[in-house]
Simulated scan of single mutants.
Amino acid sequence: MLFCSPASRFAGTAVAWRELQGEPLITLTRDSGIRLLIEVAYKTVGMPLLPAYEVSQITTALALVEARLGVAVLPTYALAAAPHRRIVSQPLSNPIIARDIVMIRPSGRSVSPALATFETILRRNVRRLAPSDLD
């Protein structure tokens, strides 16, 4: 998802990756799996990835967006860190970049009450944060 200021030209509309050309981009550092996905998207559309800022934490990226220093491409779950920030998020397309996040547990074993509760809360929050087409 693209995270931007409510005053950004991207607010309120879906955004194609190519439209990010020339925008000050805030990204996570190269040791992040998210960064690899962003690099793939930029390469796919034939643009060089030239970040204005590279940060280690999603919350730092969101703070820079809120300060209007650029736009950030972050996973949908970054919405959980932005509920009180003056930031909007928009889906990115052409290409659509996604990754699976899975929960693995041993088969053939009963689930502890703690794990069952955690799984229920996790699923509820994922549905709340994920765009409807990803449910």
Rank of each mutant, 00 (worst) to 15 (best):
M103W: 11
M47F: 09
V65H: 06
A16D: 08
K43C: 02
A52F: 03
L25R: 01
L2K: 03
P83T: 04
A41D: 02
A78N: 03
V40S: 06
T76N: 10
V65T: 08
R99S: 06
K43P: 01
A52C: 02
R127S: 11
L122T: 06
E19G: 03
Y53A: 07
E19N: 05
R35A: 10
I121W: 05
A98I: 11
D133R: 14
Q90C: 13
D133Q: 11
S107T: 12
L20T: 08
G22M: 09
M103A: 13
T13Q: 15
V102F: 13
R127I: 05
M47R: 08
V111H: 00
L2D: 02
P91H: 11
P95T: 02
T13Y: 05
L37H: 14
D133C: 13
F118M: 12
L49E: 02
Q57W: 12
L129M: 07
T120H: 15
T44P: 00
A63T: 04
L64K: 04
G12V: 03
S8P: 02
V55P: 02
A72I: 02
T59E: 15
P83V: 02
S132H: 14
L2W: 05
L129H: 01
I38G: 01
A98H: 13
R35C: 12
E19C: 09
T13W: 05
R109Y: 07
Q21F: 14
V73E: 03
W17C: 04
L62T: 01
P48Q: 10
V73T: 09
I96F: 13
T120D: 14
I121Q: 12
D133T: 13
G22A: 13
G70F: 10
P51I: 10
A41M: 01
L28I: 08
I34K: 10
Y77W: 10
R86N: 15
A11G: 00
F3E: 03
V88E: 05
V40R: 15
D133W: 13
R109V: 08
S89Y: 00
L64I: 03
S8C: 04
L92M: 12
R105D: 00
L25F: 07
F10G: 01
A41S: 06
T76P: 00
L129V: 05
T27K: 01
S110Q: 11
R18N: 08
I101N: 09
Y42N: 03
L79H: 00
A16P: 06
S32N: 10
R86I: 13
G108D: 09
R127T: 11
P91N: 10
F3G: 00
L74T: 04
P6N: 06
T76D: 14
S5M: 06
